[in-house]
Simulated assay, not measured.
Amino acid sequence: MELGERPQAQVGPLDLTAFLCELAMLVLLAMTGVAAMDSLLGRVLVAVALPAAAAGIWSVWMAPTSRRRLANPSRLYAQITLFAVVGTTAGLLLGWLVGAAFFVVSAVVFAERCRRELRAT
């Protein structure tokens, strides 16, 4: 390894699934924003604002590179809460099956990541 080079992190299927859950959260929030409003301007504003708010929360307290990243299990509690809010909102506006499926898959994936992280330390 050369000077200034970072070691390559191992990315497994669980990490990929977690990343897809994060992307799904942003997509669901945008779709929820569109479904929540009647006017075109309102739809656009809410469809941008909801994912931006979630991304902001995620980047401050949950992102791997954040300086203020929460430690587990507190981070897991915050993630589950965010997934519950997104799942409930999506369930109300897009259909209960969509919201429930998102919440269950995301909660299980991130709980397993937390379990593995705590076990490794």
Rank of each mutant, 00 (worst) to 15 (best):
W58Q: 04
C21H: 05
W61H: 09
N72A: 05
L16Q: 10
F103G: 03
A101K: 01
I80P: 01
L76T: 10
D15N: 14
L118Q: 13
L70I: 11
S59N: 11
F19T: 11
R113Q: 14
L97Y: 00
G33E: 02
A24C: 10
L76G: 01
A18R: 07
L28H: 04
A111I: 09
A55D: 06
G95A: 08
Q79T: 13
F83W: 13
R69A: 12
V109H: 03
M25K: 04
P13M: 13
I80H: 04
P64H: 13
L29R: 02
G42V: 08
E5S: 13
L92S: 05
A71H: 09
L28F: 08
P13I: 07
L26F: 12
A47H: 08
L92E: 02
L28Q: 03
T88E: 00
L14P: 01
A18E: 04
R75T: 00
C114V: 10
A111Q: 04
V85F: 12
L14K: 08
A101R: 04
R69K: 15
S39H: 11
Q79R: 14
E117C: 08
A71D: 09
V60S: 01
A101C: 09
W58S: 05
E112I: 14
W96Q: 07
L26G: 05
F102N: 02
T32N: 00
R116H: 11
L70R: 09
A84Y: 09
A52M: 15
T89G: 10
G4I: 05
V86R: 01
W96G: 03
L20Y: 07
A49F: 14
R113D: 00
D15H: 15
L76E: 00
L45T: 12
V34M: 09
A9C: 05
G56T: 10
A24Y: 02
I57D: 01
L40S: 06
T89D: 00
L28G: 02
T17Y: 08
L93S: 03
R75M: 11
V48R: 10
L29Q: 02
V98D: 02
T89Q: 06
F102L: 05
E22A: 10
A100V: 13
